[in-house]
Write a protein that binds this DNA or RNA. Structure first.
Length: 892
RNA sequence: GCGGGCGUGGUGGAAUUGGUAGACACGCAAGACUUAAAAUCUUGUUCUGGCAACGGAGUGCGGGUUCGAUUCCCGCCGCCCGCACCA
């Protein structure tokens, strides 16, 4: 083969990319008559480099986008940048630069390699979330949400880093210390803005049922996150004292210390509690059936009653401070030993006047869930049991498991939470769990002490961040009028460029003029201050898909009608790490936008189909000094690995997600240079199922590269010239076999793409290519099969497909070519191979006519040599013939 | 602790209404071409006995249902992921 006919990706790929760009073929038309298809991948953060994870993510979306285009859909497949966030600020601090310059330089650096990958993207709709036009629109949305009662302000606990002077997200707190400063993080109450996502708790939960093209896993995670539970909210009224002090539990361990001789002024505490909370203590429970097993009431250290006592009683203060020392990480809290403090207060049991229950402050009760107070039923709740055993509180079983005797039944160290008959429970005796719950709720309601309620674990979304590089919250704070929305005509509230990071904290807060100069209260006109907090960047990614649909321009114009037309996204592709936060926030946002009248999207669902792809992994290499070595710096020398340069022996370690810190990364741009974009794309889709991780290996890439050459060679070896849309209707013999194979392969390729099982489509493409490689004829059947092959490959390797299409004399671009139609007549064979089993083991096979009658089949089967040998002296008991499938002979 | 998922050759993985287990690829081995290498092509490759013909075993382990189970049911074991004192 001469040089000129070799496939040269480095020359071919840029050439076609230019053709595509000049013809503007990826522009999506809002007004098209065709059915719409919106394909979207989670947009990237502009870190400065694209990595293999991006390649895999966008390659998957691109397969779907191109496939749907070939099927006649008007496809929207856009790209943009999730460009606000902390890394830009950190980089600015580290390099003495500016977050904005850093961000936009990175975007420019990433766009080019992304375009070299040849994705079918409509770049005309590109934007970055840090564009003024984008965050101006986001400020409008914030104000709309405010108008519609979806935004509010309240004081809430936050993680405060006292060195960096900023709030940290939970993920940024590592072992109770700030991830950057290393300082011990404090819990601090701060004024924060919140989005009322809890308004939609029920709708967000119910909506999950309709998302049948979402992974089960993600739906379950969201359902758990929303955490609906039904139960009873009721109050325990104070047990009025008779002037006598109740004996307190005197000796109890508190982090190793033993406190004795408590000197609580019980009476003062009681008076305070009674005055501030005259009705008693509200609790929430899902097990009101176990009320007769209650032996105490526990309140959170953050409960208002505990806080009152914190003010008045030194011992309570000690205790609460002790609780706070445990740390803030969820895991630390979950594993912390149970701590309790007996307040001396008493409440009345609702069903039995003679019973009073002590009120404890307990560290395992969370203020953020329910009412921040519970009743403890040790026999039937593990936490309550641990607590009761530690502090010597009574344990009264009230649910009798089947087979146990009421007289002798006792829980040991394991609380019983299962089904059973109620006992020791007065009017509830004999009822089962659900009946008992209903009856107890009914009774409490009758008594006016409470009612059945539904609780959610989901909390409102705190969105205030003390950060510069984010969307400014469009609010003016006035001393006399409070927080006021920035008037519409004053938007955008633009970020000032002249800031500095020489001190920790938020540069907006100490900017010489931005906060106050010319800022007046929109209501009273007096001098006022800007809100200096910016919005959580998760807000940015909660509606960007609508901005693509509505073609947001640089003046901030957004066509909400067009956005409504494109939504929902038909196929969304991204990492499973966003299963809860991003994907839940976006579902909230679209509902908010709908209810504010901006989006016409009755379901409120932004993503009709979701696919969560696996990661790209690579082995980690370490040299003799224990330093990580880049894969490209490792060479094979005999049976050992060496580091280029130092010749240090290299050890191959675990195969894990590519990460810069472990240096187990391969730069996509280097692969594009060495093998071409098509090869990179093909490889990340070829071997592993899309939802699983794929290991990047040199040999795998070379395999993909060989395959691309093979396709080109098959095309180059073709001299027939009728074009790739040929149909060989009168093919016979080998030609007919090739046709059948091509159509069967096509059937499976389509099914693979539809089911997001690209690896199986790839296998079918291999098979078809191998068959074509062997096929010697230069006829219509060859051309037909080639036409099918090239169009099937086009979504995966578009450059190679375009080049082959042109070489075969295809009209126009393969991008515009229709998806191959499968001729169903080609899928059925006249003769079939029928496996023969004896007692379920394969003993032979039969080549017979497809519609041979059963009795004929049985005769032939019984005559088979292998079958006879297997039966031997045995007697045939039964012959099972499944037409077209199998024959099984039962013999003994 | 709760929830979800997964266990198939040397490796990645096929076999989605219970019907030939191992498609396709990687790797490996042998051969062809070549002075040689690379590239390419051909053949073989679950384990095991056998020169072969032909057998035996086999989808994490143990049971069950069935003419027939990777697939369905029960009980274990192991790994991964998510949530985690949510009352």
């Amino acid at each position: 083969m001469s040089e000129s006919t070799k496939y040269n990706a480095a020359e071919v790929e840029p050439r076609w990319q230019q053709v595509w760009a000049e013809a503007d073929i990826y522009r999506a038309e809002d007004s098209s008559d065709k059915p719409k298809f919106y394909a979207l991948e989670m947009f990237p953060y502009p870190s400065g480099r694209i990595h293999m994870g991006h390649v895999r993510n966008y390659a998957m979306g691109d397969v779907v986008a191109r496939y749907k285009k070939a099927q006649g859909f008007e496809v929207l497949h856009p790209m943009g940048w999730d460009s606000f966030g902390m890394p830009a600020e950190n980089a600015a601090i580290a390099t003495d630069g500016h977050p904005k310059d850093w961000t936009y330089n990175n975007i420019d650096e990433m766009r080019a390699p992304m375009q070299r990958l040849g994705f079918a993207l409509d770049w005309s709709r590109e934007f970055a979330t840090s564009d003024v036009a984008y965050y101006k629109t986001q400020q409008q949305i914030f104000l709309k949400f405010w108008e519609n009662d979806l935004v509010y302000r309240k004081t809430a606990k936050v993680n405060w880093d006292p060195v960096d002077n900023t709030v940290l997200a939970n993920e940024q707190v590592i072992d109770g210390k700030g991830w950057r400063s290393g300082a011990t993080v404090e819990q601090r109450d701060m004024d924060q803005w919140f989005f009322k996502i809890t308004n939609y708790a029920e709708e967000l939960l119910e909506g999950l049922d309709g998302l049948d093209r979402w992974p089960e896993k993600v739906r379950t995670m969201q359902a758990n996150w929303i955490g609906k539970s039904e139960g009873l909210q009721m109050r325990f009224e104070w047990a009025v004292p008779n002037g006598e002090k109740r004996p307190l539990v005197e000796n109890y361990p508190l982090s190793g210390d033993v406190y004795t001789n408590l000197e609580l002024d019980w009476h003062d505490d009681f008076t305070t509690a009674l005055n501030n909370h005259p009705d008693g203590i509200e609790v929430f429970t899902t097990r009101p059936d176990t009320l007769f097993g209650a032996s105490f009431v526990a309140i959170s250290p953050d409960h208002p009653i505990a806080k009152n006592m914190f003010e008045t009683t030194a011992r309570v203060e000690d205790f609460i401070l002790e609780c706070q020392k445990i740390g803030t990480s969820e895991e630390a809290i979950a594993q912390a030993p149970k701590l309790g403090f007996d307040t001396g207060l008493l409440v009345q049991h609702p069903f039995d006047e003679s019973i009073t229950l002590p009120v404890w402050i307990a560290n395992f009760v969370l203020m953020g869930y329910g009412t921040g107070a519970v009743f403890g039923c040790p026999a039937h709740d593990q936490r309550d049991l641990d607590f009761a055993r530690k502090y010597g509180l009574p344990v009264t079983p009230v649910v009798l498991p089947e087979g146990e005797d009421a007289a002798t039944y006792d829980v040991g160290t394991e609380a019983y939470t299962g089904e059973g008959k109620l006992f020791n429970s007065s009017f509830l005796n004999g009822l089962n769990k659900s009946k008992g719950i209903k009856t107890a709720i009914h009774k409490i309601s009758e008594m006016g002490l409470g009612e059945g309620v539904t609780q959610y674990r989901l909390r409102d979304w705190g969105v205030s961040r003390q950060r510069y590089w984010g969307c400014p919250i469009p609010v003016i704070k006035c001393e006399s009028c409070g927080s006021q929305p920035v008037p519409e005509d004053q938007l955008p509230v633009e970020l000032p460029y002249d800031i500095n990071f020489d001190k920790p904290g938020n540069p907006l807060d100490r900017h010489p003029t931005w906060k106050t100069e010319g800022v007046t209260c929109p209501k009273c006109g007096e001098a006022a201050e800007r809100e200096t907090d910016t919005l959580d960047t998760f807000a940015d990614s909660s509606w960007y898909f609508a901005a693509f649909g509505g073609s947001l321009d640089q003046d901030g114009n957004l066509d909400w009608e067009a956005a409504s037309k494109w939504l929902p996204v038909d196929q969304y592709v991204g990492g499973v790490e966003h299963a809860v936060l991003h994907l839940l926030y976006a579902r909230f946002f679209t509902r908010g936008l709908r209810d504010c009248g901006l989006l016409d999207l009755p379901s409120g669902e932004p993503f009709a189909g979701l696919f969560t792809q696996g990661m790209v992994t690579h082995a980690v290499y370490t040299d003799e000094d224990g330093d990580y070595v880049l894969p490209e710096d490792v060479i094979e020398d005999g049976n050992q690995l060496l580091r280029i340069g130092t010749k240090s022996i290299v050890t191959k370690g675990d195969v894990i997600k590519m990460s810069k810190s472990k240096k187990n990364v391969v730069d996509p741009d280097e692969i594009i240079k060495g093998y071409g974009a098509d090869v990179a794309r093909w490889f990340v889709l070829s071997d592993s199922p899309p939802e699983r991780d794929v290991e990047w290996t040199e040999s795998g890439v070379i395999g993909a590269w060989r395959f691309s050459k093979k396709v080109w060679n098959v095309v180059s070896a073709t001299t027939a010239t009728d074009g790739p849309l040929s149909v060989a209707t009168d093919a016979k013999g080998d030609a007919l076999e090739l046709r059948k194979l091509a159509h069967r392969a096509m059937e499976n390729i389509t099914a693979g793409i539809e089911a997001f099982r690209f690896n199986t489509s790839v296998a079918q493409i291999y098979e078809l290519t191998n068959a074509l490689n062997k096929y010697k004829g230069q006829d219509a059947a060859r051309l037909e099969a080639l036409g099918i092959l090239i169009r099937a490959i086009a979504p995966f390797m578009p450059h190679l497909a375009e080049e082959c299409w042109a070489k075969l004399g295809g009209e126009g671009l393969v991008y515009h070519a229709p998806w191959p139609e499968v001729d169903s007549k080609m899928l059925v064979d006249d003769t079939i191979t029928l496996p023969l089993q004896v007692n379920g083991k394969r003993r032979g096979e039969l080549n017979i006519a497809k519609d041979l009658p059963k009795d004929e089949i049985e005769k032939l089967a019984m005559a088979d040599e292998g079958v006879q040998r297997a039966i031997g002296d045995g007697t045939v008991r039964k012959v099972i013939i499944v037409p077209g499938r199998i024959v099984n002979i039962v013999a003994s």
